[in-house]
């Protein structure tokens, strides 16, 4: 009765109509509270969740790992740069300080008529009872026994022994040391002796001299070892006994013997010639 073509057209029209009706009906209740679609959701979602979480985790691990690796590498690089910078700063600081010290030594050498040999302190006395240092210049540098050793701050001591490359210096704070000295203002004369554990004492100063705490004591040059006028220390205490012709004067040396690094050895004590006015 109907041709095949006619049946197909009617079928399509009915299908479209049913579809539209279905859609129009369900569009008014878009989220049904039950139905087969929820079962699918219940079944599929855990897998989705697992896969999503895993992939997110892996993605996170992957990116974080590379982030960490790159951060770690960057951290290593920065730490290395920081270490190098600190090392450079430290080296430059040491060079700056050495430069200041050597400049002072050079200026002192030029100003003080003391053309000496600069040397580095390489060792100190192993015993706390004796005060000596070892310097890295010796006989081949024309350093010999009895030569005075100084720094810009004042007198250090004198050479008591020298080998080809090294010399031993007896510090003025050793009890075996003695330097002929003058108090700068009053011209009171005495002998500076080392006083354990690291000070000095000015002995044989006549009581009649009125000395003041804080006055500077200098080398008199009369011992034939230390050039005249070199500073030794400052008076820190004056002890006048009731009896006796001398007073005892405690001296605080200008030189910090704990921090001694470079010294100047004066090969021959300079001669001071008087000129006629």
């Amino acid at each position: 009765m109907f041709s095949k073509r006619m049946v197909l057209i009617i079928g399509v029209i009915v299908l479209v109509a049913v579809n539209m009706i279905w859609l129009s009906v369900h569009s008014k209740r878009p989220y049904p509270s039950s139905g087969p679609d929820r079962n699918a959701l219940t079944f599929i979602s855990p897998f989705q969740e697992a896969v999503t979480l895993t992939s997110r985790f892996l993605k996170g691990v992957w990116f974080h790992y590379f982030d960490l690796v790159s951060t770690g590498m960057e951290n290593d690089r920065l730490l290395k740069e920081l270490e190098m910078s600190l090392e450079t700063i430290n080296r430059l600081e040491e060079e700056r300080l050495a430069n200041i010290r050597l400049r002072n030594l050079l200026e002192f050498q030029e100003n003080a008529d003391a053309h000496g040999i600069a040397a580095e302190v390489i060792g100190k006395d192993p015993s706390p009872w004796f005060k000596t240092i070892i310097i890295n210049k010796g006989r081949k540098d024309n350093i010999g026994k009895g030569m005075p050793v100084v720094v810009p701050q004042g007198i250090v001591g004198q050479v008591i022994d020298a080998t080809a490359g090294y010399a031993k210096v007896l510090l003025v704070i050793d009890q075996n040391s003695a330097v002929d000295a003058l108090v700068q203002n009053t011209r009171a004369r005495g002998i500076i002796k080392g006083e354990p554990p690291g000070g000095c004492i000015l002995q044989y100063v006549l009581r009649r001299h009125d000395l003041m705490v804080g006055e500077t004591v200098i080398a008199s040059g009369l011992d034939g070892v230390f050039p005249k006028g070199l500073r030794i220390g400052r008076i820190s205490e004056i002890v006048k006994q009731n009896a006796g012709i001398f007073q005892e004067v405690v001296i605080r040396p200008y030189v910090d013997f704990e921090k001694l690094e470079e010294v100047l050895v004066i090969p021959v004590p300079p001669k001071h010639e008087f000129t006629n006015p």
Partner: peptide, 8 residues
């Protein structure tokens, strides 16, 4: 040795 390097 110690006598050599010390001021003793």
């Amino acid at each position: 040795t110690m006598d050599g390097i010390s001021g003793s």
